[in-house]
């Protein structure tokens, strides 16, 4: 009972911080502050608005109209249909590839990080200190720094130009493991696990029925981070893949944009614009819907005092 209460309060502390007490710390609203921030909001949303508006234009009216207002025939749905049918429907293929990389790479990374973070938080084992030091160090290693070396190594194994060459490197998220580790340390009382062990439950069962439930908010945060990271990945697939059949959306779109100015190339800016809009829609929606999770995750990860 006591342990349960602590677990709940630990989870509650890091998930929701919505209400603020009304006191000296809640002053009057300021119009000036709001206006200045409004400028930043305009700066942030202008490119998105531009993308939305121009996805409704035909290739011809794109070049003959003001960028931030509608013009010509409303061809939003026509553009979407054209995006999916262009080049034998390669856009759909890229979208499905992206989903494959997100599910296998991002999902796999989240599962590995969750198991590992739980292991680090609640077990002692030989070599633990070395593992902790290496993982904390690895957070600072940028993925792009390793892309060229990883390509050279993967090509030795004949893994390049296969989906595995994109999925396998995506499976490691040191920052995700770190977040779960912090979260599991806070949210799961050791006493609760000890009690389950005394009852004779196996370690796997304890993890699945107690540990995993308590770190679920942390799990969702890491899932979001890896989802965005794999969805937005560009350098790694660009290096690893050579046939358009396996491209994700990012590499495919930049290919389309490269082909437009080339000699004899058909101008398809309207498709690049509509394709870009389609490519950002899922991540933006997921982010806005699940915002309380990423807020909690960032809070857990960056503000430890």
């Amino acid at each position: 009972m006591n342990a349960d209460a602590r677990a709940v309060s630990a989870a509650g502390r890091s998930t929701g911080r919505k209400s603020r007490p009304i006191s000296i710390t809640t002053p009057r609203k300021s119009v000036l502050f709001t206006l200045v921030m409004g400028l930043m909001l305009i700066y942030t949303l202008t490119p998105v608005a531009w993308l939305l508006i121009n996805s409704t234009k035909t290739q011809n009216s794109l070049s003959s109209s003001f960028g931030l207002w509608f013009s010509g025939p409303f061809s939003f749905f026509h553009n979407i249909a054209a995006t999916f049918s262009y080049g034998n429907g390669e856009f759909l293929r890229w979208a499905l590839n992206t989903v494959l990389y997100v599910v296998l790479g991002g999902g796999g990374a989240t599962i590995l990080a969750t198991l590992g973070g739980y292991g680090l938080a609640h077990f002692t084992f030989p070599g633990k200190r070395a593992v902790m030091a290496i993982i904390i160090g690895a957070i600072a290693i940028p993925g792009t720094a390793l892309a060229v070396p990883a390509y050279l190594m993967f090509s030795k194994f004949g893994l390049t130009n296969t989906p595995w060459s994109v999925v396998i490197p995506s499976l490691i998220s040191p920052i995700g493991l770190y977040l779960i580790w912090v979260y599991a340390t806070e949210a799961i009382p050791s006493g609760l696990l000890e009690a389950a062990r005394l009852d004779g439950a196996s370690e796997l069962r304890i993890f699945l029925s107690i540990g995993f439930r308590l770190i679920l908010p942390g799990f969702v945060t890491v899932l979001l981070l890896t989802f965005v990271a794999t969805w937005n990945n560009y350098f790694l697939p660009l290096i690893m893949l050579s046939t358009p059949n396996w491209f994700p959306l990012t590499v495919g779109l930049s290919n389309w944009s490269n082909q437009a100015p080339s000699a004899g190339g058909q101008l398809i800016d309207n498709l690049v614009i509509t394709g870009s809009l389609l490519a950002i829609t899922p991540t933006v929606i997921v982010f806005l819907l699940l915002q309380r999770y990423w807020k909690a995750g960032i809070a857990a990860g960056s503000i430890k005092e």
Binding site: V48, W50, T250, S276, F287
Partner: peptide, 10 residues
């Protein structure tokens, strides 16, 4: 949440 490729394109 916007891929850097799309940000650069926009």
């Amino acid at each position: 949440a916007v891929p850097s490729v799309v940000a650069a394109l926009m």
